[in-house]
Design a binder for these strands. Structure first.
Length: 928
DNA sequence: TCCCGCGG
DNA sequence: CCGCGGGA
């Protein structure tokens, strides 16, 4: 194999990784607020290449200013979004890193990095080298041939992949050398290359299959029929110009001194200094491993310095390389050994393999355990491969003592899942002391990479096998039960082992961010409570839903034909785009606010727009009714029965503790936190949620908990007095603003005051307020002014929160749950800034309410048991708890629940609750 | 993927 | 403001 020259496209890679990290929710920055996502992305890819590929030669190309393409076509890249300012500033750091690695920088005035890469690549091939180009820019694919491959970054850092000529054909449908012809036809929106108007991807690939180049197409233009031919003829000039723009030059006068590109003499202290300055801690750790083991390519055959188990890090978790470090427990002897290990254990990490994603339906396939780092156990119990495995009964009695040992703390990743799966198999797990997913969430609530695989990369720098490598994906997916034990074991044991290994770094991470208190007093104790609620589930009145569905269908059919009749023709009512055309083109209605665009360029048809169009055409009212009914039918009435668990006959929602950045729970499968309540018809759906025979549903909700929290946290006297006096807070607000006695507040005044109170909680602007109230912007501004004049403490509090958010970079709830706002510190653009300021105001209010509710939920089961009551907690809807209560215990239970909720976390303002009960969620009556 | 709409 | 889900 010839030596290989690695060429990195510096800008494209920084750009791509910047957005990859941003879209993954990472807001990378240093302590002082300097954004680093682009640098980090670039540096980690560079490190990965040095560690894993050991390139013979490596150089990095950069763009410089305007290029000859702008002379050819002034609009070139004119529409491309300007590079974000904070990324631009990062490019210089990237250049420094390249220098510190002693790698050549390739740049030339007047040409793009693409052209530099193309030219150098061509020269290298002529010298007999292989070339690999690392970029984020698909255009480079045109350079691929049998000596040049391109590694293209994906939407996530881990999704980069190599493209050979065959890969290009498979992905784009054309050969690499045809990429420019393809661009000539299709153009490129992001570079503002026009192409041939009207020719899309499909047309272009099929044309290029028959005629390999533009020249061939136009030479045979008479073989092409109809409209396509006309389009091609009209776009002829544009096609050739576009192709020229898209063509990467390979004859740029630039040269590379290969000796300088030998990737073997990085200036370690310089790199480390830069990484330290940028606070790339994990990269520094990798550096230490890289430097001593790094040999000139000729002598690098020994290798092996990068490993944890003596294998390259990419292979950890794959069974063949993990083989010495896990045991399959499928004999009585092995089980005995495991029991002995458990007896001496100080902690126990647990993971389960099941046949599905719903823990209340899936079957248990195997249990993984780890008690020390570097060693894992896999206990198969449900493999359907005919291989020997222990009986579940034996496993259960062997494990139960340790699993329920009060002195043995249990760890897991999303451990609520495993708890439920184990319970269904007759096991249990307590006490649960550490959930790595929740810990990761508290360290960064905005993180979208809380999967075990992601966290393993982020915190341990270990790449794990993905489950799809075992069970496949799509329609050929099998379940874990069909995977041979030996193949499953390495993967499964690694899950428990990695979980165990994550605990240390996560504790440290939580300590740095002072998240331990919320973790230990709120989130971890909540896990078993939520598991219990999910297990309980809630009963549905199926007959009622069936009848409702029929009635809705009938009415929908009526409305639909009525709409088609008034409009004059048929169209797809459920397509918002078609609807927009019908209303604003065919019917000629004027969009009330023509600025209200949608991303696809259509006018919005949202309910508030339609609301304004009422009366202008009979179809409008009908559409609004249609929308309401079809939403109800598809989302609730027809969907809920499908979610009933056949074993229990009830629906078991899943509560996610890591779903909401503010600390609220999120409910899914089905979401029982958005069952309608605001309209009469919607409320009907709630009637389908019923109590079991002999039971009643009891609902207790906090009244105005968020405003009470504002009053307490801000200490605003006027607001506190209103609450202490037990006044209707919205009316009291209106009275204060309008300066009228409380009794004289009109409905309108109260409604506006209510809107501003809500706006307050949501950090809303005058603009938002005017939208939600129908006041003019000026009126809304005056209203806000009057509000703050009456509640000066609230204003001070809001200013304080904003200041804290921008100075410290985070805000926190009363219990210390934090939400981070790195962009406020670094002064991002005004839009983002305003958005984050609103989020910063909302987070402590909503988050404190969420914390208090969680504390109540944790305290409740013990209090009920203490009182000898048998109520079951079923649902939490942010400020409401729903329980199923034996009829004769209603009164006592209501008292306990109210007491627990009202005293969960004492504020300087009393928390009040309201209890209601009934046989269904839809017809609850206040308690006597 | 976007748009819309349900809840708090 | 924060979510989840249906449908094109």
């Amino acid at each position: 194999m010839p030596p290989v020259l690695y060429l990195i496209d510096g800008h494209a890679l920084a750009y791509r990784t910047y957005f990859a990290l941003a879209s993954a929710g990472e807001r990378l920055q240093t302590h002082s607020g300097e954004p680093t996502a682009g640098i980090y992305g670039f540096a980690s890819v560079l490190m990965r290449i040095l560690e894993q590929d050991r390139p013979d030669y490596l150089a990095v190309a950069f763009d410089t200013g305007k290029t000859f393409r702008n002379d050819m076509y002034p609009a070139y890249k004119a529409t491309r979004a300007k590079m974000p300012d904070d990324l631009r500033a990062q490019i210089d750091h990237i250049r420094q890193i390249v220098d510190a690695f002693n790698l050549p920088r390739l740049e030339k005035e007047g040409v793009e990095a693409d052209d530099v890469l193309g030219s150098i690549a061509k020269q290298a091939v002529e010298h007999g080298l292989g070339v690999k180009i690392i970029t984020g820019d698909r255009d480079l694919l045109q350079l691929v041939n049998d000596r040049i491959i391109v590694n293209l970054a994906g939407n996530k850092l881990s999704e980069a992949r190599d493209f050979t000529a065959a890969d290009v054909v498979e992905t784009l449908g054309v050969r690499p050398e045809q990429v420019i012809e393809y661009k000539g036809l299709v153009g490129d929106k992001s570079d503002n290359i026009p192409g041939v108007p009207g020719v899309g991807e499909k047309t272009a690939t099929s044309l290029l299959e028959r005629y390999p180049t533009l020249e061939d197409i136009y030479a045979h233009i008479d073989e092409i029929k109809g409209a396509m031919r006309a389009k091609l003829e009209a776009g002829r000039e544009s096609a050739f110009l576009s192709r020229d723009l898209a063509t990467i030059r390979t004859n740029v006068a630039i040269s590379l001194d290969l000796e300088k590109a030998r990737a073997n003499d990085l200036n370690l202290p310089a790199v480390e200094a830069i990484f330290r300055e940028l606070e790339f801690r994990t990269l520094i750790a990798r550096l230490a491993k890289l430097a001593p083991g790094y040999q000139p390519p000729a002598a690098s055959a020994a290798g092996g310095q990068l490993s944890l188990f003596g294998v390259p890090i990419t292979q950890v978790g794959q069974s063949e390389t993990f083989a010495n470090h896990y045991s399959v427990v499928n004999t009585p002897e092995a089980l005995k050994e495991l029991q002995q290990a458990l007896a001496g254990a100080e902690c126990l990490a647990v993971d389960t393999e099941t046949t599905g994603v719903d823990p209340l339906r899936a079957e248990l396939v195997g249990i993984s355990l780890a008690v020390v780092e570097g060693q894992g156990y896999y206990i198969p119990v449900g493999h359907r491969t005919g291989e020997p495995q222990l009986k579940l009964d034996e496993v259960r009695s062997a494990l139960l003592p340790a699993f329920t040992d009060p002195k043995l703390p249990k760890y897991g990743h999303n451990v609520k899942y495993d708890l439920l799966a184990l319970r269904r198999a007759g096991l249990d797990l307590a006490p649960i002391r550490f959930d790595t997913m929740i810990a990761g969430f508290l360290i960064d609530p905005a993180s979208r990479s809380l999967g075990l695989k992601d966290m393993s990369e982020d915190y341990l720098n270990l790449t794990m096998t993905h489950i799809e490598e075992l069970i496949g994906k799509g329609k050929n997916q099998i379940t874990m039960a069909e995977v041979p034990i030996e193949r499953a074991a390495g993967y499964a044991a690694a899950d428990a082992e990695i979980t165990l290994r994550l605990v240390g770094p996560l504790r440290k991470g939580m300590a740095e961010r002072q998240a331990e208190k919320v973790f230990e007093t709120v989130e971890m104790p909540l896990v078993p409570v939520l598991a219990m609620m999910e297990q309980n589930g809630i009963a549905l009145d199926l007959d009622f839903l069936k009848q409702m569905s029929t009635e809705l269908t009938n009415r929908l059919v009526e409305i639909e034909s009525e709409i088609y009749r008034t409009v004059g023709y048929h169209f797809n009512l459920n397509s918002t785009q078609q609807l927009s055309d019908v209303l604003f083109k065919a019917l000629g209605l004027l969009p009330p606010d023509p600025r209200k665009k949608t991303a696809s360029g259509h006018f919005s048809t949202s309910a508030d727009i339609l609301e304004e169009l009422r009366g202008q055409h009979p179809a409008v009212d009908l559409i609004l009714e249609y929308r309401e009914l079809s939403k109800l039918k598809s989302t609730y009435v027809d969907a809920l029965p499908l979610q009933i668990n056949p074993d229990t006959g009830r629906v078991h929602t899943s509560f996610n503790q890591t779903g909401s950045v503010t600390g609220r729970l999120a409910s899914s499968d089905p979401n029982l936190q958005n069952i309608p309540t605001r309209t009469e018809l919607g409320r009907q759906v709630r009637r389908a949620f019923i109590a079991a025979p002999g039971y009643r549903l009891l609902s207790v909700d906090y009244s105005q908990i968020e405003l009470r929290i504002v009053a307490a946290m801000s200490g605003d006297e006027a607001m506190r007095q209103a609450f202490l006096a037990g006044q209707d807070i919205h009316a009291a607000t209106a009275a204060a603003i309008q300066n009228v006695p409380l009794e004289q507040v009109t409905k309108d005044q109260r409604r506006n005051a209510k809107a501003i109170n809500f706006g307050l909680i949501y950090g809303m602007s005058s603009f938002g307020l005017s939208r939600s109230t129908g006041l003019t912007l000026a009126e809304a501004e005056n209203f806000v002014k009057a509000y703050f004049a009456q509640f000066p403490g609230v204003r001070r509090y809001l200013d304080e929160v904003r200041k804290q958010a921008s100075q410290r970079g985070y805000v926190e709830t009363l219990l210390g749950r934090r939400r981070y706002f790195p962009n406020l510190k670094s002064g991002a653009n005004p839009n983002m800034r305003a958005r984050e300021e609103r989020e910063a105001i909302n987070a402590p209010i909503q988050g404190t309410a969420a914390d208090i509710m969680k504390l109540a939920m944790i305290a409740l089961p013990g209090a009920l048991q203490q009182a000898g009551l048998h109520a079951r907690l079923l649902l939490q809807v942010h400020d409401e708890l729903v329980l199923e209560v034996p009829e004769n215990e209603l009164q006592g239970t209501a008292g306990v629940v109210k007491d627990i909720m009202e005293n969960a976390y004492p504020l300087s303002i009393p928390l009040e609750t309201e209890a209601r009960s009934g046989i269904s969620w839809g017809e609850l009556q206040p308690f006597a």
